[in-house]
Every structure is written in structure tokens, then in C-alpha cells.
Write a protein that binds this DNA or RNA. Structure first.
Length: 281
DNA sequence: AATAGCCCCAACCGCATGAGG
DNA sequence: ACCTCATGCGGTTGGGGCTAT
């Protein structure tokens, strides 16, 4: 006990939360919400710092949290998204309703990483095409060649005009999509040309939908998504990535947006401006 | 049954960012 | 422009449960 870096309080408890503390926090948040986390401990009668309360609520107590094992679909999605955005756990979590960044991070560090390592070792040890121990995510990497293709695929041919996707992040997703988010980090702009198609399409299949939905006509977007879902992306991303029809649809949809890349940078993910409308002026 | 080692995951820490004064 | 404070994020830690011996 003693000094706490985040709040300068002397009498803050640390470590695991007791059921009584959980109950106090739940009762307070349920009744009053959490306008200011730094005020929550005192008002809820907890000897914790606000940061600790926030973390406990977000990662464990909030009612919409989803617990238990990750499904194979979630696992595939995590892998696909990680291919694109790397260790941006909060971002990945925004595509898995009810899952927290912490949970996904732990999951990745303990389990998926191990599996991929194991798979890589197996591939390098022999020429066998199957990846043992990776069975229920096999559709993503059905062979070592395919794994290599996923990891090292050259960018697809450039379309006739620059086009972007908007990946809408966690929490205030809808507001970010329409340009009124207070945090620019809530919305990342990608150029699909710099990503492999399978990764993009995989990510696109996850809610909140990427991209075009932020700007294009909602009915067109819905139709595009329906087509994508009918093609069963979750189970056959390789087929997706090689489907000229789907890819043409995506390109066509993006081109219809008539978005100009003001920055002129085609190869790196961008932080979107806090107001997306600024891009089109 | 005891215990040593491993691993998972809840929680913490430090940093980045943005709002407001 | 600068400072302070609150929040959110990713990296890291360590307690406790599990497993092997």
C-alpha cells in the first residue's frame, strides 16, 4: 500500500478485487453511470484509484461482456485482423462484440502465438502441406504455401484511382464513422492497395463493418456485405481473396466514393482526421 | 500426498493523447 | 503556448491454479 502513481492517494487498495468491491462498483455504476472515473472510488465507497475501477468495469464487470473460450470464428478473425493492424488490441477488440482488448491480448500472447510458432516450426521442419495443431483455423492457412502467401503476398495491382477504407474503432464507432468522434484514433483510414485482399475482406466481414459503410450509400453497402456474407468469408477466405467478382465489387464500391487521397501516401495506414468530412473538401 | 515448475489472466504501469484552464 | 488532469492503450508482471513428477 502507499503511493499510487496514477492518483497520488495513500490509501488505495491494489490486487485482486473482492466480491464486495465488485458489488459496490456495479451498484454505483448501475445507478449513476461513470461520468468521471476519478470520482467513482470515493462516491462508490471504494479504496481504489479511478483507473483501477475503470479497468475492473471494462474488463470484467460490464454487463455486455462476453466470457468463455473464443470460438473458431473469433480466432480466425483475430488472426486476420492482427495481420492487418498488428498489436492494436483495442482495435481488434472492436470487431469482436463483448470481448476486451485485454482478453484478446492475453489470448494472443498465450495461445495463438504459440500455435503459429508451432506451425511455423512444423512447416520449416518438413515439406508437409498441412499444419498440425492448427486444425480449427485451417481455412486461413490450409498449407504452408498459403501461409507464406498470407504473410508475404505482394500488393494487388493498383486500381485506376486511389481508394480508402475506414476502419471504425471501438466504442464511439458510429460517431467516428461520420466524423464527429472526439478522438481521431477511433477511426483509421487504410488504403486497400497496401493490404492483401484476403485480410481486408476478412476484416470487412466483422462488425463494425469497415470502410465503405462510413461514406457510401447505406443500401449499396448492405448489398455488398450481403454478397460477402453469402460467399461465406469466415470459412473460405482464400476463395474470397481470389474471387474477382467480390474484389471487383469492393473496388467498384470504393471508386464510387470518389475519394481523393489528399496525403498522397499509398502505403501506410493513416490516422484519419478527427472530422472525416475535412478529407473531402 | 507433496511440491516444483509452468502457464494463464487479472491487474498494474507508463506513456500518448486530448480537453480545458 | 504551456500546464494539468483524465482517459485510453499496449506492454508487463505476479499470484494462483493446474499439471507433472
Amino acid at each position: 500500500m502507499g503511493h499510487h502513481s496514477c492518483c497520488n492517494q495513500q490509501k488505495v487498495k491494489r490486487g485482486l478485487w473482492s466480491p464486495e468491491e465488485d458489488e459496490k462498483l456495479i451498484r454505483y455504476i448501475t445507478a449513476h453511470g461513470y461520468g468521471c472515473w476519478s470520482e467513482v472510488p470515493e462516491k462508490a465507497g471504494l479504496q481504489r484509484c479511478g483507473k483501477s475501477c475503470r479497468l475492473r468495469w471494462i474488463n470484467y464487470l460490464r454487463p455486455d461482456i462476453r466470457r468463455g473460450r473464443f470460438t473458431p470464428e473469433e480466432e480466425k478473425l483475430i488472426i486476420s485482423l492482427h495481420e492487418i493492424v498488428g498489436n492494436r488490441w483495442a482495435h481488434i477488440a472492436s470487431h469482436l462484440p463483448g470481448r476486451t482488448d485485454n482478453e484478446i491480448k492475453n489470448y494472443w500472447n498465450s495461445w495463438i502465438k504459440k500455435k503459429i510458432h508451432k506451425s511455423t516450426m512444423n512447416v520449416s521442419k518438413s515439406a508437409q502441406s498441412s499444419i498440425s495443431g492448427y486444425d480449427h483455423v485451417q481455412p486461413l492457412f490450409a498449407s504452408s504455401d498459403q501461409l507464406d502467401a498470407m504473410l508475404f503476398v505482394p500488393p494487388p495491382p493498383l486500381p485506376p484511382s486511389p481508394l480508402f477504407m475506414f476502419d471504425v474503432g471501438a466504442g464511439d464507432t458510429a460517431t467516428a464513422a461520420y466524423g464527429s468522434s472526439s478522438r481521431s484514433s477511433a477511426c483509421t483510414m487504410w488504403n486497400p492497395c497496401s493490404q492483401d485482399q484476403a485480410s481486408i475482406v476478412n476484416a470487412m466481414a466483422a462488425p463494425p463493418f469497415l470502410a465503405f459503410g462510413a461514406c457510401m450509400d447505406s443500401s449499396n453497402f448492405a448489398a455488398l456485405v450481403d454478397d460477402c456474407m453469402e460467399s461465406n468469408i469466415g470459412d473460405a477466405s482464400s476463395e474470397w481473396s481470389s474471387s474477382p467478382l467480390i474484389w471487383e465489387q469492393i473496388q467498384g464500391a470504393a471508386i464510387n466514393l470518389d475519394i481523393i487521397n489528399a496525403a498522397g501516401d499509398h502505403h501506410q495506414p493513416h490516422q484519419a482526421p478527427s472530422n472525416i468530412d475535412d478529407m473531402f473538401t
